[in-house]
Design a protein around this nucleic acid. Structure first.
Length: 417
DNA sequence: GGTATCTTTCCTGGTT
DNA sequence: CAACCAGGAAAGATAC
């Protein structure tokens, strides 16, 4: 995959600058295109900054794509490349995420995956597709991320078959796209902080012109996850870390059913290879029937497949679901997705979910759990009845009411904040 | 390490 | 039939 980045479109009467971070899928995939527009007249300093910004984009992507041909990197000709982008930007040292660390595949750009990450990733898709692992040679899984990323779709299909190979390819494309754009935006924001006269990305208009549906939701990603604080930072910080976490549910979970995040399975792959051939409980008709309750977590120390690392799936205590819901209601302006919920009766504390699944996805983002659904969220909500944090509203769908043990939603309380 | 709390996940069955 | 609701059961994650 190549990244054509930092294409600067200077000029125009106003002297405005457009910077494009354009990603291409080398014929295999689609195009995700981010255009950051600075619609303000630029003085000499700002033009200089813009030029530097373009160089940053170029170098950032050269850094990310080791195999990156320079044929598309037109901006690299503007100025001499930086000797080290790390000198200018505080890049996370992702290359240091070696096997044995706690980083999971879904938390990392596939470019930086270890062999273990690749194995985990394949295992996840084997399980989610009910693929017969006995037909698969483990030697196929013995590759690292950079090597994996060099495999073309056809090669993946040859190795893993049409069905699984296709899923793996799709997943790889999506993951690369997600993290590529995420990292580029991070680089840009880091860079822009050095220039107070220049608007940060968070203030920049972002146009999503991706043609393919696989990427049609990037605008949502940037709007909800990167460019806007989702919820008040004062409330233990609902800082949007989804761009750097596994969830990023916004990208895929809203619309893209083929991505791992949107599957009914765990966001966290719970089924290692060693578990794939296990006997499932089966009904008389032969279909798999799961037991009641939450499935037990599979031990990760089985042979060498999984490290003993523990994923910190939950954020620290401090923000509960009802508080999250409350804050959406009392700070709707802080959510890009306005209209998620609305008050039915503010004085009585009655409210209604408008976009129930979207709220669930937001909650999932916060909890780094991209498999969150309204079904699950509503179960948690129902537990609040007993504690009188919520009161029942019978006969009305998607309608809840704050109970006597909830706080912070009343007009008097919010006015004091 | 044990326990309590707060979810999360999955399920069955019912209602809209 | 899909979406939602209700609530049991079991397990994970974290705080204490």
């Amino acid at each position: 995959m190549e990244m054509r980045a930092g294409r600067k479109v200077c000029g125009g009467e106003s002297g405005s600058v457009k910077v494009r971070a354009e990603k291409e899928g080398s014929g295999l995939t689609e195009t995700g295109l981010l255009i950051a527009t600075y619609p303000l007249p630029l003085n000499q300093l700002q033009m200089s900054c813009a030029s530097e910004l373009c160089r940053v984009l170029t170098n950032a992507n050269m850094t990310m794509y080791h195999s990156g041909s320079s044929e598309h990197l037109q901006l690299s000709q503007i100025n001499a490349p930086l000797s080290s982008i790390g000198d200018l930007l505080q890049l996370p040292d992702l290359t240091g995420c070696s096997p044995g660390t706690q980083v999971q595949w879904y938390e990392l750009n596939p470019q930086y995956w270890s062999k273990q990450n690749v194995l985990d990733w394949i295992s996840y898709y084997i399980e989610s597709s009910k693929f017969d692992a006995s037909t698969l040679s483990l030697s196929y899984c013995n590759i690292d991320g950079p090597t994996l990323c060099t495999l073309a779709r056809d090669q993946l299909l040859n190795l893993f078959g049409m069905s699984l190979g296709s899923q793996l390819h799709q997943s790889l494309v999506e993951l690369k796209a997600k993290y590529d754009l995420s990292e580029t935006c991070k680089l840009l924001d880091n860079f822009l902080q050095e220039f107070p006269d220049f608007p940060l990305l968070s203030t920049v208009e972002v146009n999503d012109v991706a043609k393919d549906t696989s990427y049609s939701d990037f605008s949502h990603v940037f709007k909800t996850a990167t460019f806007d604080n989702m919820t008040p930072s004062s409330d233990n910080g609902y800082e949007s870390d989804s761009m750097h976490s596994s969830s990023s549910g916004a990208m895929s979970s809203f619309q893209n059913p083929s991505s791992p995040e949107s599957r009914s399975s765990e966001s966290e792959p719970e089924f290692p290879c060693s578990q794939i051939t296990k006997e499932h409980n089966k009904t008389e008709r032969g279909e798999v029937k799961r037991g009641r309750g939450r499935p037990p977590k599979i031990s990760r120390d089985h042979k060498h497949f999984y490290q003993t690392s523990k994923k910190n799936k939950h954020t620290p205590r401090g923000t509960h679901l009802w508080e999250f819901i409350r804050d959406i209601l009392i700070h709707p302006e802080q959510h890009q997705n306005q209209g998620l919920m609305k008050w039915e009766d503010r004085r009585e504390g009655i409210f209604k979910f408008i976009k129930s699944e979207a709220v669930a996805q937001l909650w999932g983002q916060k909890k780094k759990n991209s498999s969150m659904t309204y079904e699950k969220l509503s179960r948690a909500m129902r537990y609040y009845y007993k504690r009188e944090i919520l009161d029942r509203v019978d006969g009305r769908r998607l309608v809840y009411k704050f109970g006597k043990n909830s706080t912070g939603w009343r007009v008097e309380e919010t006015n004091r904040l």
